[in-house]
Amino acid sequence: MDMETIRELQAYGYAFFTVFLAVILYAYIYHLYKSEKNGRRDYEKYARMALDDEITDSPVEKIEPEYQEKDKEERLNELAK
């Protein structure tokens, strides 16, 4: 591969990924506000993790097997939308 081709690929790679990541970023912003609005997930509650951080405090979201199952379902739902 000569330098010319590499430079060309580089330019395409740069342009494509920048657009791609910009789209992802805006999709993420949309996701953050949308999921809060329709009550699916309140992101702000995670801020409590720093405040209620005693080992005896109950976690904001516990790791439990059935919980993970529920999460999986939710994920599928999300993908289906």
Partner: peptide, 8 residues
Amino acid sequence: RREKTLYI
């Protein structure tokens, strides 16, 4: 960990 989501 016990906390499912990772804090920032």
